[in-house]
Design a protein around this nucleic acid. Structure first.
Length: 218
DNA sequence: CGAATGATACCCT
DNA sequence: GGGTATCATTCGG
């Protein structure tokens, strides 16, 4: 078999969507298992149309109403409804009046709400599209999607994709990627920007790939 | 280090 | 209904 065909088969496997059951586990377990997976974006219109793929290198877990750092602490509202809805869907919101953030809804049976914030990816494919969307010609590749709002800008994700199903190959989805990464590669620490949340702020629910240059600053 | 910038949620009339 | 405090960030000075 030709080398290109083998590579194409491998790439197709890496782009295979994660199925619903992947997200029907505890939010923290899903967050852990998302490291090394791919975020895939297929756009049809505009100068940056095409496929963009990034490898997840940093995430944060957010729980139900009991988690004072989580938006779901407000209960079921128009804004937070996706966090209470079917797992495997997106929760996209605006923060600080100008930035979007992308989460995937994940929780086990019995939990009221939960989602994993995707904080950083490293470019895998379509890096030129990312750079175009970011409009920052001098940034190194590794920093193009290093931070939750940068990730959304680089991947052309906005609130139109709120509640979008991420388990089908349609526009935006999460894919198998490189599979599960080893425990030894993972570092953990408190979530960013949630100092207001009392005891909950200290929980080590931020997870990242140790030493990866695309992890956002702290 | 702090300004930018607007949706949301909540409290009060 | 209307006022306002708050914010899961980023970039430039």
């Amino acid at each position: 078999m030709a080398t290109e065909s083998v590579a194409a088969l491998a790439a197709d496997r890496q782009l295979q969507p994660l199925d619903r059951s992947f997200f029907a586990r505890s939010t923290l377990v899903v967050a852990r298992d998302l490291l090394g997976r791919f975020v895939c974006r297929q756009t049809a219109d505009g100068e940056s149309a095409g496929l963009t793929v990034g490898r997840i290198v940093e995430v944060e877990a957010y729980g139900g109403p009991e988690d004072l750092a989580s938006h779901s602490r407000a209960g079921l509202t128009k804004r937070t409804a996706p966090m209470f809805g079917e797992v495997g869907h997106a929760y996209v919101y605006l923060v600080y009046g100008m930035h979007e953030c992308l989460n995937v809804v994940a929780r086990d049976d019995g939990a009221q709400a939960g989602a994993v914030l995707l904080r950083a990816i490293e470019p895998v494919s379509g890096v030129e599209r990312m750079r175009l969307r970011r409009g920052r010609a001098s940034d190194p590749d590794a920093k193009l999607a290093s931070g939750p709002a940068r990730l959304c800008q680089a991947m052309a994700v906005d609130r139109n994709l709120d509640a979008h199903d991420l388990t089908t190959r349609d526009g935006l989805w999460l894919a198998a990627g490189d599979g599960t990464v080893a425990d030894a590669e993972i570092a953990t620490g408190p979530r960013i920007g949630v100092d207001f949340a009392g005891d909950w702020a200290a929980r080590p629910w931020r997870l990242w790939l140790a030493g990866n240059p695309s992890v956002s600053g702290r």
